[in-house]
Write a protein that binds this DNA or RNA. Structure first.
Lengths: 350, 350
DNA sequence: ATTGCCTTTGAAAGCGCTATCATCAACTCT
DNA sequence: AGAGTTGATGATAGCGCTTTCAAAGGCAAT
């Protein structure tokens, strides 16, 4: 736990008997240094346990190799693939991805963007298209490439890849309606703007189909979890006992609904059909497996990262496409579609 | 998307007609500047949209206000509360928490530590006690406070708070044995070291009780998910059809086991008792709710962050306690203990 | 030999900020 | 009234690195 100051470039240079520039070159562009010196410097680096001071290096070179990523949440499985995809592209290219979680708060998002700007990232990736005016302003004036993901907009800050959540919500309703359902409930939690848009799509589509939504929408102003799904669905049942289908704003609520059905002896999908959103891993595993609207999270992350690389590498050239709608797909499973009846009550195998 | 370079301290100073130092003071210690100038400078800051260059500021002051946090995963709900707790303490104190996810890889962890060191964090918080030698070395020579969390060790790098996972595994076994179970299975995934330790505790305790573990342990070398729980439990059933209890290394596998039981018509807990690990939110919501070993994740995060603050603020003084074992508790629920039989088959409420 | 052109190394300047010390005015106290 | 004190501002140096640009040596071509 030595509190002696850490070795600097100059320390290494002194130890190796060369000038500081040479040490810098050994680290950044080893090809420029003769075999002989390169070895001597490397030894000194190892011996002194030298780690370049990124702050100084970035300040001097005006290249930080940082890409800032803002996510609204880390809780809900949704942003793992996404962030993972971004890192898989950017890390090998020599960039450090700095992820800040803003917990679904616009104020925190603004703060986070400002904080990140202080580190002079070479690009920014933000989730959603609903930044505050000030946040938009910060991003725009930053002068670096900005990618908005997860949602689509007519007025992107810069680049944009996502999907139309209103359309996805509407599609879920159409799907259930196509199955013959008319009393279709919607459960939603303290929504991020995208969940609200899905809700809007649900409402619009229900109306377009001439279906009533009275008593069929339940929400609570906190971050969702599985138990909330049970609670919200219970509320629905209290108001509309003969509800036959539920579309939830995410898979946690869908799973909670499924559990509530199990608890009450309601058969899924025969008595109640369930459609979730996000298609998290547990959807395939539950009994019955959950139908869910699947989104291209990895695709969005990868595209965002690659576009950024192109721009930075291509010295400012913009990619041909500024905006991409990656769409969505409904993964139909047993929670909405009984299908060719499998023998569900199979007994202990052995 | 102006590519003009961003405003600097000097730009602001020029605009406000003061010296650069004064601008710096308005930002860092406004009390030192007269009302009059303070206002003029603030206006200039706003007009030029000045954001301090953190790199330059940190370099000059040798205070980065950064605390580095290494987590092995963001996927599994486990690290949210933990990171959240750390941020809740450190952000208000003016620190930026930099979280790096190393995806359960020792090599990535080493890289991440090295990368973070380049930013000269004022403290480091790492999950687990199983860093590579080089990683330990890096952390030790960094000269900053280091907290190892989530696990306990006799040989901490610096500070340490966690729990004894072997003991937790053993306790789960003792609990199930106390319920009368003797054929107790264990499911585990590509383990982080803590999962392996829980496994070790399971084995040791089974042996101590004189119970066989033949065919009762199943694992797969990938990151776990709910479906894997179903798969592993199926494997157990194939080998030991009359298994009566399952202890899993995490809640995902527990939930997968529960689903597999539902699929096969096995009653939980009458036919199969299930005990998970971590006590994630869905444990209370499932049918039946899942018994799980609960860990003090928020406590660990809070303690780590507060200890760091004490050390930094207290100019190097170490807290009285260097090592803390926060223990664990078994949250007993319906998946292991039928309890006073509730009417599970309640019909549709209305 | 002389010119020219690489290749390898180093000297100097400066990235944007803060720490330190100096300056100067305004004020208190004896 | 003179010395000492306080408070507000600025000049200067330097954090650790990279980016020029210059220097020095080696070599081939004239």
């Amino acid at each position: 736990m030595s509190r002696n100051r850490r070795a600097t470039l100059s320390d290494v240079a002194r130890a190796a008997g060369v000038s500081p520039v040479t040490v810098s070159r050994v680290i950044r562009q080893p090809g420029m240094v003769s075999e002989n010196l390169r070895q001597r410097v490397s030894d000194a680096v190892a011996e002194l346990q030298y780690i370049p001071n990124h702050l100084a290096s970035a300040l001097a070179s005006t290249r930080t190799n940082i890409v800032g990523v803002i996510v609204p949440s880390l809780t809900n499985g949704v942003f793992d693939d996404y962030v993972g995809a971004i890192e898989d592209v950017l890390n090998p290219a020599g960039f450090q991805v700095l992820v800040l979680n803003v917990r679904y708060s616009e104020i925190e998002e603004e703060r986070a963007i400002q904080a990140l700007m202080g580190y002079h990232p070479e690009a920014m990736i933000v989730a959603g298209v609903d930044q505050t005016d000030r946040a938009r302003q910060l991003l725009k004036t930053s002068g670096v490439p900005v990618v908005q993901t997860m949602d689509v907009t007519d007025d992107p800050i810069d680049l944009n890849i996502g999907l139309d959540h209103a359309e996805a919500g509407a599609a879920a309703v159409r799907y259930l309606h196509g199955l013959g359902h008319t009393r279709i409930a919607h459960l939603t939690a303290r929504g991020d703007p995208r969940a609200r848009r899905r809700h809007g799509g649900y409402l619009r589509q229900m109306q377009a189909l001439g279906l009533s939504t009275d008593g069929l929408v339940q929400s609570l102003p906190r971050i969702s979890d599985v138990a909330m799904g049970s609670e919200l669905f219970s509320n629905i049942l209290a108001e509309v006992p003969d509800v036959t289908a539920v579309f939830t704003c995410n898979d946690d609520l869908a799973l909670g609904t499924l559990f509530e059905c199990q608890r009450r002896g309601l058969r899924v999908p025969e008595d109640v059909a369930i459609v979730g959103f996000n298609d998290l891993d547990f959807c395939v595993a539950s009994v019955p497996p959950l139908t869910s609207v699947s989104t291209e999270r990895r695709t969005m992350g990868t595209w965002a990262a690659q576009s950024i690389l192109e721009i930075i590498r291509g010295s400012g050239k913009r990619p041909k496409q500024q905006s991409v709608d990656v769409g969505f797909s409904i993964k139909v499973r047993g929670s909405s579609d009984a299908g060719p009846v499998p023998d569900r009550r199979q007994k202990r195998s052995a």
